[in-house]
Design a protein around this nucleic acid. Structure first.
Lengths: 137, 137
DNA sequence: ACCCTACATTGGACAGGATCTAAGGCAAGG
DNA sequence: CCTTGCCTTAGATCCTGTCCAATGTAGGGT
């Protein structure tokens, strides 16, 4: 994750304690925190950090393609640091928890040209929905 | 759409002017209105209709499987009356317009059991993103 | 045709998520 | 080490959606 910060700094991103903490909190696999969760964890290390800064930083990271934003059906968006390896998501319909998945095949190939309505199709995102082990119990 | 209302009435759904208007507004192909848009159009015919009733009715229709709820971005959910033929969506990244598409293959089959993390997987939803002809021009 | 009653509708309050604003703070180049 | 312009902050505000208590009404029963 320090790579990330270095990379961004070289692109003119001012490096602050707040941004560093947000990036650190997001680090890891299968991390899909809401903005509020990011704020809570960041505040453990940097108590004064504000919600607005967390939102600003997350928005920046998404915009620069370093973090994925995952909208989960009306609940709070979740933020996924695993933006560089393409993948899809498995979502618990009950509690909203998320796992990264790597399905076989290419969904883009399953959309016949006749179905494109003249669109330039850029990507396909697959969301699997189900009930997680915790919620099934 | 009158079929729909008949069907629901037979299942004990009380038929009111408000519900009729909401169902009428939703009728058609490639219709993906937000709750607020449904309310606005319904109010053209039935000025006193309240937002709460529109939300209630949409929730009921979704719950009974007559209408699909589509959460595109993190913005307002959209409601799709085409619930009986399974399909997916093609979304313009620029203007947000939506088209129904029918890709080949079954995305559910592309998720190996080893990837399920103990979830009971219920459905797979594919969202294609691109640029529509109007926005490309 | 008329009542009853359970179910629907209403408007306004409320809640959660996210954005905006204006004022003060601070990274980093000079 | 100073200056400048970007960052951060707290709190207001917006947007979407839900909840509530009071009122209205569809439609079965008589």
């Amino acid at each position: 994750m320090s790579d990330l910060l270095e990379r961004l700094r070289e692109r003119g991103w001012r490096l602050t304690a707040q941004r560093r903490v947000v990036a650190e909190v997001l680090d890891g696999d299968h991390v899909h925190l809401t903005a509020d969760e990011v704020h809570a964890r960041a505040a453990e290390r940097l108590p004064e950090i504000s919600r607005a800064t967390v939102y600003n930083t997350l928005r920046e990271l998404v915009h620069r393609g370093e973090v994925l934003e995952v909208s989960t059906d009306g609940r709070a968006k979740r933020y996924d640091p695993n933006a560089h390896r393409p993948h899809h998501h498995l979502l618990c319909a009950r509690c909203g928890s998320i796992r990264d998945v790597h399905p076989t095949g290419d969904p883009l190939a399953n959309l016949p040209a006749a179905q494109s309505f003249g669109f330039t199709v850029l990507e396909a995102e697959v969301t699997y929905r189900g009930i997680c082990p915790d919620c099934a119990a």
